[in-house]
């Protein structure tokens, strides 16, 4: 509190020093001008002024996961095949291979839990300051929290990643090697 509302004496000293500084420092003068116009002050909250940087996703882990899904669950084979040419029963049979293998791989390498423990369809209330990256509100998004609505998807959250270690020399771009039977 004392920082945001200084005493009369310190306000007087501040006014004098600011007076001189506004005269001799044009950048300081510019910031004071903005402040008095009602804009948030730059140096006090620098992150809000600088634009958020985007970063490149690291491809190695992605390649590794694709490789694991292919290895255990034939994931790439399945997606690369034209499903239009087959009946639902045929696609379903292959889907079992993919489902069983990918599920095993997923369980082995990630710990996944629901973001919300409630069952889907129940009414939930979101308090003020809810985590917007973990919970997405949809539909009539108006007014102020607390929001009350129906849980349409309980969400998934990874709580642990247990990816295999990779040999430094290993080429991760090979998701599945070509096989030649001799």
């Amino acid at each position: 509190m004392s920082e945001s509302s200084p005493s009369v004496l310190s306000r007087l000293l501040l006014a004098l020093s600011a007076f001189w500084r506004i005269l001799i420092d044009p950048r300081f003068a510019g910031r004071v001008a903005k402040l008095s116009a009602g804009a948030p002050d730059g140096p006090l909250a620098p992150s809000r002024l600088e634009p958020q940087r985007l970063k490149e996703a690291e491809p190695n882990a992605a390649l590794q996961v694709l490789g694991l899904l292919q290895q255990e669950g034939r994931f790439i084979d399945f997606l690369e095949e034209d499903v239009g040419a087959y009946s639902d029963a045929e696609v379903g049979a292959a889907a079992r291979v993919v489902h069983e293998g990918c599920k095993k791989s997923l369980r082995q390498h990630f710990a996944i839990e629901a973001v919300r423990a409630e069952s889907e369809g129940t009414r939930v209330t979101l308090a003020e300051g809810f985590d917007a990256s973990a919970i997405r509100v949809t539909g009539q998004v108006v007014g102020r929290p607390p929001f009350t609505g129906s849980l349409t998807h309980k969400g998934w959250r990874v709580t642990e990643v247990r990816l295999p270690q990779v040999a430094a020399a290993h080429d991760l771009a090979i998701l599945a090697p070509a096989e030649v039977e001799l």
Partner: peptide, 18 residues
């Protein structure tokens, strides 16, 4: 319970035996 023998080649749907 269905048992599927996956194909060895990339044709998973066409080559698997159910």
């Amino acid at each position: 319970v269905p048992v599927v023998v996956p194909s060895r080649g990339t044709r998973l749907i066409g080559g698997s035996i159910r």
